[in-house]
Design a protein around this nucleic acid. Structure first.
Lengths: 244, 244
DNA sequence: AGAGTGAATTGATCTTGGTCAAGGCAGTGA
DNA sequence: TCACTGCCTTGACCAAGATCAATTCACTCT
């Protein structure tokens, strides 16, 4: 059971599970499995019956929905430390979106039935899951606000601010975590718009971009440019709380 | 304690409280009070410490946030059967938005401390609150999708479809629940855009509008016009579940 | 009935981002 | 090294919705 120990060490401190007694954690992990997936692999499809949910150890997963007329809307891109499909337990046992591997990923696959069962047993688990859901809620709230009020360059700046360690002074260098096209879809814009908006952002805030690496000369300047049209002060409240 | 009985009868079957044992309900209502408020009354402000949360018995409440540069973004408009401010319990005891009476309203004001205490005691309450939060989540998901993919006339049509009893055949007549300006802000558009989009909708789907009353000749035609750009079939899943 | 108020409509113009088309650039594989 | 592929960028044009300004409409108050 070496694999199980690895899984346990990675997952037991994840947001929805903190503070749970060990036997509940064991119950949750009863049917867990560590998996590796290649880019492009489809994990599940919107409205399919949900038997598994997942925890991201490494890599990136794209969540999206498809409309009747075929358009694809990206819901989120999840990285290490995030869960996906876990909310199906409260939503008639169906997935609320489709999920596809965006960059080669290592996942823990878990059983939704186990989650349901343990939720019924453990009050602690229910409470931390509640906190987790509330955080998700807040995150979506901000997403709605951002999409409504921010311009394309501001949305990119906001994305960058969330990448950099905000406590740092002076010049900071970061790397875009995945393709620009994917970032664009994550931010709800077209690749062309992303490209142009990034150019504008360079002019306006003095950042420098070469390939995937971004040099932010003054975090302050980025904040001034972006956070005016936001209802909460920077650093954003949801930054410290991870898990999708 | 006549007032308490009135309150209890109205609130005990609300989504987050269903299936709770009577003593827990009593605990929740310990510091409850029935209130009447005039239009324009500010209930609480974004990021203020949250001591009360509310249940809407009658009327309409506007939820919104204000950005640093003064723009107001409407989060939602809540009617009878909805809660507001209840999520503060999981969000560091702060309100996630400001709330203002949009149309003369009757509310039950409840104590967040009591909610917190009872959540700690009752596993049932935690579980139904969890379901409630999941529904909210789904609702927000749809909101994001709609704002991204629907045109202004489609958003209005979607709003109308949610007003009419969808099972009805033939011509249906509804009434807009509040001012057009308010509906516009709820749908994230300007009043002018709303007006023009409504005209277009009249042409395209044959609906008739006079003042606040709307005559829908064919619900089917409205669906065809709107639901193409949506990822879930009509009738939308979230329709049956109320409570904001 | 008439004045006054706020909501709603309409027109003209502008801005943002989307769409379509054409290249450019970087990494891969023979 | 050279083609091939996919990602990214750039340009020209378009469409949706925002903005600004001017009425018009509906309702209340006197």
């Amino acid at each position: 059971m070496v694999q199980n120990e690895i899984i346990e060490s990675r997952i037991k401190n994840a947001a929805p599970f903190v503070g749970c007694p060990p036997d509940i954690i064991q119950g949750l992990l009863k049917n867990a499995a560590l998996q590796n997936h290649k880019k492009g692999r489809l994990l599940f499809i919107h409205e399919d019956p949900a038997d598994r949910y997942y925890f991201v150890v490494k890599g990136w997963v794209k969540l999206f929905r498809e409309t009747l007329d075929g358009t694809q809307a990206v819901v989120d891109i999840l990285g290490a430390g995030c869960f996906l499909g876990e909310k199906s337990v409260f939503q008639d046992g169906e997935y609320g979106y489709s999920a596809e591997i965006a960059e080669e990923a290592e996942l823990v696959s878990l059983c939704t039935q186990d989650l349901k069962a343990e939720l019924g047993k453990s009050h602690e688990l229910a409470l931390s899951m509640l906190r987790h859901m509330a955080d998700q809620n807040k995150k979506q709230d901000m997403e709605i606000e951002h999409r409504a009020l921010q311009t394309a360059p501001q949305r990119i700046a906001c994305f960058l601010l969330r990448l950099v360690d905000q406590s740092q002074k002076g010049t900071v260098i970061t790397h875009l975590p995945y393709d620009k096209t994917l970032i664009a879809s994550r931010l709800g814009m077209q690749p062309e718009t992303f490209s142009r908006a990034l150019s504008k952002l360079k002019q306006e805030t003095g950042i420098k971009v070469r390939g995937a690496s971004v040099e932010v000369e003054s975090v302050e300047r980025l904040k001034n440019y972006t956070c005016q049209t936001c209802s909460s002060d920077f650093p954003c409240r949801d930054l410290l709380k991870k898990s999708g």
